[in-house]
């Protein structure tokens, strides 16, 4: 099965990104494909390379990048939402790309299931 995931909240502030990550990992473990994760609203903050959590905490940004690299997941950050919040190419973490809202719609069209995590 082909999954699309939408994340609408930023890291650490809300559990949404954590839940989405564990969902994605479980789906992959079961042999499914996570085709794309789309970051919208404050979710775009999951893609900031300036993120520096304390040493003993999970690194939400790097964790997404690693999962994506290992499993060929397309991590897409909404351009309109990103620019509003100061996320640009210059502070975009590795493994993420900035693109338009059409990528979210495309996830809905191409994936068998689209699961949203937010507030």
């Amino acid at each position: 099965m082909k999954f699309g995931i939408v994340i609408n909240e930023g890291p650490y502030q809300h559990q949404a990104s954590d839940s989405a990550y564990l969902f994605a990992k479980a789906a992959i473990a079961k042999g499914h494909e996570v085709w794309r994760v789309f970051f919208y609203h404050d979710g775009v903050n999951n893609a900031s390379k300036l993120t520096e959590p304390p040493q003993d905490d999970r690194h939400i940004v790097n964790r997404w990048a690693k999962l994506a690299e290992e499993n060929k997941i397309d991590l897409v950050v909404c351009v309109a939402a990103a620019l509003r919040r100061g996320i640009k190419e210059e502070n975009l973490a590795q493994g993420f790309r900035i693109s338009g809202l059409g990528q979210l719609v495309e996830s809905g069209i191409k994936c068998d299931r689209l699961i949203t995590f937010g507030d």
Binding site: N8, A27, K30, G118
Partner: peptide, 18 residues
């Protein structure tokens, strides 16, 4: 979480009540 994944498959659509 594996059971969560299964539920999204056994149902044709899912809605997150945000």
């Amino acid at each position: 979480y594996g059971g969560f994944v299964d539920l999204t498959i056994s149902n044709n659509t899912c809605q997150s009540w945000l």
